[in-house]
């Protein structure tokens, strides 16, 4: 009997190709952003179908949620809407050739894979019993999650530092009318609780702070958009400190773990759970502050480009 999900999977795969093409082909920036968000949604669904709900969760929170909000914010601060124009043909040629090379390399890897992947499958299967996770995709990702988080935080911190140095057009949200308050009253506390829940779900393994941070940042962004909280009013320095703590703390933990257990990003035996919960909680708050700060732009009052 055929798998009843085959129709769904084919539709999803086809849909992803179409959306990817539409996102690339749209000349208008706003349309491109919406298509990009739709691509994030479909990518998340595809992780679901690959039996990796953890990755689907991350893709939903980061790819479809917070990135879209950041892109919309960026679009609003551009002085002129980007002009519609076709790219110069030499650039288009180079991009085309590069893409073809990458596609060729991926195809070659796929074609040459069978023998190699057999061995890999077995290695993962053996490890699966030890790690206590039942899904191979999740297990592989979990083992590298702390490295992943470290790099993500480094990238975010660098982005924030560059933005603070260059300055940016301050955020000036439109007034949203009296119904935004009840909206915020439901969404803001819910986002805090859901962020805590995601943190708790991810706390059995290191590195799940990012999804929680994205949801927490979303709650903060609603507060800022409703003009209920203005981080520029007085505590710019405090926010910069909170943003910095994430990267600094994580690096310290990595080095400390290296000294104690002679393996980077490994926590001492027995204390793992406590360590993970504390570190992840700190990371969540710090990354959320960084994401929200990226959304707001300049952190000092009256700072302009």
């Amino acid at each position: 009997m055929t798998d009843p999900w085959i129709a769904f999977d084919l539709t999803l795969a086809g849909g992803m190709l179409v959306v990817a093409w539409l996102a690339l082909a749209s000349r208008a920036a706003f349309q491109m952003i919406v298509m990009f968000m739709m691509f994030g949604i479909l990518a998340s669904l595809s992780w679901v179908r690959l039996n990796a709900p953890d990755v689907a969760l991350a893709e939903a929170a980061v790819g479809a949620g917070i990135t879209g909000a950041l892109l919309l914010r960026t679009l609003s601060s551009l002085r002129h809407a980007p002009k519609e124009r076709a790219p110069h043909w030499p650039i288009a040629m180079v991009a085309g050739v590069l893409s073809l090379i990458i596609v060729g390399a991926l195809g070659a890897a796929l074609l040459m894979a069978p023998e190699a992947s057999l061995g890999y499958d077995r290695a993962v299967a053996i490890r699966l019993d030890q790690s206590g996770v039942t899904n191979p995709v999740t297990a592989v990702l979990l083992n590298f999650r702390s490295y992943d988080t470290l790099l993500e935080i480094a990238v975010l911190s660098a982005a924030l530092a560059i933005m603070l140095m260059l300055g940016s057009k301050p955020l000036s949200p439109r007034p949203l009318g009296p119904l935004f308050l009840p909206f915020a009253k439901v969404i803001v506390p819910s986002s805090v609780i859901i962020a805590g829940y995601l943190l708790w779900l991810g706390a059995s393994q290191p590195g799940g702070a990012f999804q929680a941070a994205a949801v927490l940042a979303a709650g903060g962004i609603v507060l800022i958009l409703g003009q209920h909280y203005d981080p520029r009013a007085r505590d710019g320095a405090l926010i910069r400190l909170v943003c910095g703590i994430g990267l600094a703390g994580f690096v310290l933990v990595a080095i400390g773990g290296q000294i104690l257990t002679s393996e980077m990003l490994r926590y001492p035996e027995g204390l793992e759970k406590t360590w993970i919960v504390m570190i992840e909680a700190t990371l969540t708050v710090s990354v959320a502050a960084t994401l929200a700060a990226l959304f707001v732009g300049a952190l000092r009052k009256g700072t302009t480009a």
Binding site: L176, G177, L179, F180, P182, F183, I187
Partner: peptide
């Protein structure tokens, strides 16, 4: 978010 979002 549907009802208030629709209004917004």
């Amino acid at each position: 978010s549907g009802a208030i979002g629709g209004h917004l």
